[in-house]
Amino acid sequence: MNILVCISHVPDTTSKINFTDNDSKFDANGVQFVINPNDEFGLTRAMWFKEKQGAKVTVVNVGGSETEPTLRKALAIGADAAIRVNTKATDGFKVAKQLAKVITDGSFDLVIAGRESIDYNGGMVPGMVAGLTNANFVNNCIALEVDGNTASATREIDGGKETISVGLPLIIGGQKGLVEESELRIPNMRGIMMARQKPLTVVEPDETNSKTASIKFEKPAPKGAVKLVPEDNLDELINLLHNEAKVI
């Protein structure tokens, strides 16, 4: 099995989010970048396919050279090879177009991406890749098994889950559940050393126009002070929720 894991390079979850250039750009100053958590679950599941079923695992990112440490980290965790498509990820469609080309060129039969990136929260790249490559697609995937040319994928639905049987080629939008939290791996020294020897190929992008453009960012207005209610006066809490907030 030839697996491609899509890796989005995102600010660490604890990052303070700031903007620059007149609030038109994300300010990466002092921000630590990580593998998007949804992709980390996917990569860890891919390692299982590698170790148990002999799959080959390639990771890919569409982005500038600043994302290479994130790809190296994925190699240190155990991926065999990395590809970086050398262009700015300006919108989901453009990223999907680049990934579609990588998938066709590399004849990958299983593509593991994440449900969404925690930076722009687009939630669209894997679905668009599936649409562009005509592969099957399962989103919100919380369990995945592959047997020959068929996969069994479990998807979280509002209020439950469903299990789907589906043929390869397949793209999934993965999330927590694909592996247990405790299975996530921190790269060790040996992995880091080995990662240096593994191929990280830079490919030039296909001509694509973005369909959407980010114009400006705003931050939410600061929150007013909390109204504290003494614990022996819960009637007041109910009064506030009913008459002031009008939520009960």
Partner: peptide, 14 residues
């Protein structure tokens, strides 16, 4: 909403 509710993004669809 973007950055998981930490910011708003103004986006144009072309």
């Amino acid at each position: 909403n973007a950055f998981t509710n930490k910011a708003f993004e103004i986006t144009q669809i072309n």
